[in-house]
Design a protein around this nucleic acid. Sequence first.
RNA 1: GACCUCGUAGCUCAGCCGGUAGAGCAUCUGACUUUUAAUCAGGGGGUCGCGGGUUCAAAUCCCGCCGAGGUCACCA
Length: 499
Amino acid sequence: MSQQQTETAAPAIDEVSRRNGRLAAYTERFGSPFNITTFGKTHEASVVKAKYEALAPGEKTTDHISVAGRVMAIRNNGMFIVILDDSDRLQIFHDLKTLSPEHAEKLDLIDLGDIIGVTGIVRRTPRGEITVDAVELSLLSKALEPPPEKFHGLKDVDFRFRHREQDLVASQRTRDTLRARFKMITLIRQFLNDKGFLEVETPMLHVLAGGATAKPFTTHHNALDMPLYMRVATELHLKRLVIGGISEKVYEIGRCFRNEGTSPRHNPEFTSIELYQAFVDFREMIAITEAIVHHVVLSLHGTSKIKFAEHEIDFTPPWPRRGMVDLIKEHTGLDLYAIPDAAAARAAALKIGVQTESGVSWGQVVEAAFGDKVEHNLVQPTHVIDLPKEISPLAKAWPDRPHVAQRFETYVNGWEIANAFSELNDPREQRARFEEQAEQKRGPDDPPHPIDEDFLKAMAFGMPPMGGMGMGIDRLAMLMTDSQTIREVIAFPTMRPVD
RNA sequence: GACCUCGUAGCUCAGCCGGUAGAGCAUCUGACUUUUAAUCAGGGGGUCGCGGGUUCAAAUCCCGCCGAGGUCACCA
């Protein structure tokens, strides 16, 4: 073999093949990392850093500890390795001059992204970094794919959502955001459990998708040869559980599915919490809504005020209660209470730039005007009360104000985050409302609303007066994490497949 | 569903008044060795989203498709 041939550059090899080669070499020499089932980890990275916080630069201990995590950086030919576990980063040191040949061989086969376990001695380097001087090194799992770029991380939004595991490894922000979202759900559970609520489960597969006016996903049960719908809300079954007396206070945190457009605030599947409490009305729901949200804000941020985009939002209860029609008047000058006729109200709304379909009810005009002219202004937490009965088919109306429902919607940052009412419990009235709703078609291609006879039969069995509230967990998570899109707070948002 | 914008190396990006593709990180080789996005020298790596058109020549211009982001519509 000539001198020139030995100096020829290494043949081109792709990253995966190269890593497979190193895996084979490691396996040959030390056994397959994939045969390893356990590692006796004694410390989390953050615990190591906290425990040895008092060490002075250059100070060494004699404490042996074992840590494990993903290799995030390799500097100085492996002299310094930075690993990341679920708590923090931690630096590992190898003195290359005194390393045993076997240990050096192992070290040489470690790549960025590998999962390693290290046993060693804690010290603080002269430059100030808490470090583990490695005595033993084990490859616990091989990364055959390389990690994202170490400084810029993953920027491609599409790729980040399709491969959240890589996004999580690369981005502290993503870890913080998703952890906050999941912790928030636990906080709400604990809060309600402490208040005596029973967490329940209701079906996701519905024969009729009721409880909200939304387009459902359809599916099919083969053995029963029948169509089924993914639930759009948990409302009707939760009420049936309270009717049966399983508990006077129930809640469900769960996924709902709506076959509608996506947007920065809409994902086809989203998580709602709905809760129902017997013998109280919407006013108690206002109190519990404020209490839940304030508890979450305080627990996650340690303060009642949070930053969202350019706003500071103050969640200190109580939050203002404002009439929907009053707010429209305040923002546009139009007093829809003075125009009770639907057609006249529609014409008046048109003059202020609010367009509605012909034949809509007075309540739908109010809803449209509110949505166009008021909603986006409600940045600080606000309960919008006195919603029209016509757009509240499951809510009680006021006996002395028959066109106004005992209902509120809570708005923050211009978004509806909660919706609650004194639940209608008169089965005759409920049937009439459903029938009225069934006659209204949502759009030219939409089927009419089906009437849920099972629910009506349940209500006829005797439903206690109760308050109910529903809240969008995803939007609350967006607020808590200063996330501008719902996809940031959903671990795996719905995506079209790439080819 | 409509409109606007984007899609270049594994990752982050430049090139886009048409002339045949570049940088940093990663990777490989070598040097150095208490680093902190380590450093220095050199090498390899690209169907420029896919398909078609215009042209002597297309990453670049035009059309269609796919995917994404934004705005709107629907909605929570």
